[in-house]
Amino acid sequence: MSAAKGAVTGHHAIIREWVQLYTNGMYAWAYHKTTDKALAEDLVQDTFLAALQSFDKFKQESQPKTWLFSILNNKISDHFRQQFRHPVVNEAEGGLSFFFDEEDEWRKERSPQAWNTTDTHILDNPDFRKILQHCMHLLPGNWLAAVKLKYLEEKEGKDICQDLQITPSNFWQIMHRAKLHLRNCLEINWFKK
């Protein structure tokens, strides 16, 4: 066996070992970020393939887990960037007229009602989480992608704009529409009950 071939086989063996060790954690993480099982599986698979291809860049002194998760996080962000550029159209009403009348005032039936909570402990409730995910997935693909990118990467507004190649006003208009819908959906499905 040549030295080069031997090294490649060695890389395979190491990555196979990592698959056994880290797949569970990576899959759970990817699922947590995307709430899509098939997508989470694909992202984890792609991460291991990328790790195999760029194995030479792995510095032996760093932790394999850290390296794999950094690749995975890049893959997750790339996915949402892609989704922003090529959105899947869905049913959500995009116009502001869904919420506001011709005088630019709130439509009574969709105006904000009082909520009985003001803190984020509500996330401890698994039923609320389900509703939140449900409401997020009703958003058009590019809105959801913008929301995910903003909160996943904790970037400043201006950096997100640069990343997505949109103007700041584009960005806050997307967030405005996304939040109007998200707020309304949560109110109907959770806070009003």
Binding site: A28, W29, Y31, K37, A114, T120, E154, E187
Partner: peptide, 26 residues
């Protein structure tokens, strides 16, 4: 009221994406 809800949603989304537990393990 919208402002209060929007700020709460902002905090919820921040927390949701930065918690390190995996409540829905596969």
């Amino acid at each position: 009221r919208y402002q209060k809800h929007s700020r709460l949603l902002h905090r919820i989304l921040m927390e949701l994406h930065h918690e390190h537990e995996h409540p829905q393990a596969p």
